[in-house]
Design a protein around this nucleic acid. Structure first.
Lengths: 231, 231
DNA sequence: ATATCTATCTCGCTA
DNA sequence: TAGCGAGGTAGATAT
């Protein structure tokens, strides 16, 4: 990784066009050829960037650019698309390089997949006498998160979200419509389960005859003994 | 902005939990207190981060950590939420700091707004004899991107996306339902227009009697003479 | 302030 | 490889 603090202007031409006027910024060149241009604020998103795989070619400025004060032109070319990033460097303020090697990567806990695993294991959270049919039940329009059977033997489709939004209810509605065309499964009821369910989503779910279930991840995690094995 | 190359491990606790094992990485501390942890690959997204506003407090390691080789503990605390990032630094390999000042920011061209302007100007892309009624036609549930009249004088509602997804079709369906209640407009047909339309979206659109139209931005942009005026 | 929608989204999984 | 869904989505815009 090479880190250059420089006064520069930037032009991007690709899926859109974008321009950065002359200012002092950080230029980060990664081992895979990707380049990130960061300012001293904002968030984790750079002002501009080139995704890998890419190649950086540093050239002398043309006569006009040199006249304007440009000392180097960085041409960053995407290897797969014809996206191009042109960085005009006016002044180097700092320049360091280090080989970081490959990163072991991030270990996550608490995403939808974990919630789904826990609910499948603790299927009676849905109600007394429920049994799991299967997780990720495939249909023509995508996988139903959890398919279960209630105490009376009726099929129940569960859509699971970390945050229960209106489009989650839409998604479950589409699944229910499809599943109810299958005479072997019909009638199929819907349950919308999430850690938090927004009021609008609750209203829409009620309107569609879909039950809502708010899940307590920490509590479910506490019951699961594999949680302690994660770190 | 402070740039530290360090061997470190990282733990995040907030909306989820995440852990980064010991490895060499870049730690970027911005003027607003935000911290980014980058590896030498991936894309513009850091391995882990803390969004501004945040405060960084650097402390001595506890006895156990010191024993394990930790020389500094960075506590990054979000000012608004209780999200927390703990960076255990084992070794500093490089450390530079620069004041970059505020950035003038990015100038963009080629997003959905541009596509909408172009389609409004080139409304016959929809078909022979079409005329524009108006862009951003307001309804109670939001603006319809483009409202037009076909050669036969019937009303057509256009939903425009850069990438045509299933929820774009849902959105257009809601608009059509509403527009068709207006006797002055009804019957209103729907057209789903995008640079790329996903197969599932096409199937759903067909099922709802909505036409699909794939747009070529570069070609439409070529026709438009205002494109050359941008930079 | 909140709600909604876009994104050069990125990332990971699966068919 | 392409498609599809999730994200600590983030970021912008209209309400």
């Amino acid at each position: 990784m090479r880190l250059v603090i420089a006064r520069c202007s930037v032009d991007y031409i690709g899926r859109l066009r974008a321009h950065l006027p002359l200012a002092t910024r950080l230029l980060m060149v990664k081992a895979d050829g990707s380049v990130l241009i960061h300012s001293d604020g904002g968030s984790y998103k750079p002002l501009n960037w080139m995704s890998p795989p890419a190649t950086l070619r540093i050239t002398e400025p043309g006569a006009d650019d040199a006249e304007a004060g440009v000392v180097e032109v960085w041409n960053v070319q995407s290897a797969k698309t014809d996206d191009k990033l042109v960085i005009s460097v006016y002044e180097h303020l700092s320049d360091v390089a280090h080989d970081l090697g490959t990163d072991p990567g991030l270990i996550k806990d608490g995403v939808e997949a974990d919630l789904q695993r826990l609910l499948a294991e603790q299927i009676t959270k849905l109600g007394e006498g429920y049994t799991l049919i299967r997780r990720e039940y495939m249909t023509a329009i995508g996988p139903v998160d959890i398919l279960a059977r209630d105490a009376a033997g009726a099929t129940v489709a569960v859509e699971l979200k970390r945050r229960g939004d209106i489009d989650g209810v839409e998604q479950l509605t589409r699944y229910l419509e499809l599943l109810n065309r299958d005479p072997l499964l019909a009638p199929v009821r819907g349950v919308f389960a999430a850690q938090q369910i927004k009021p609008q989503a609750k209203v829409l779910a009620a309107d569609r005859g879909i039950d809502c279930l708010t899940l307590d991840y920490d509590e479910m995690r506490g019951v699961d003994d594999s949680a302690s094995r994660l770190f």
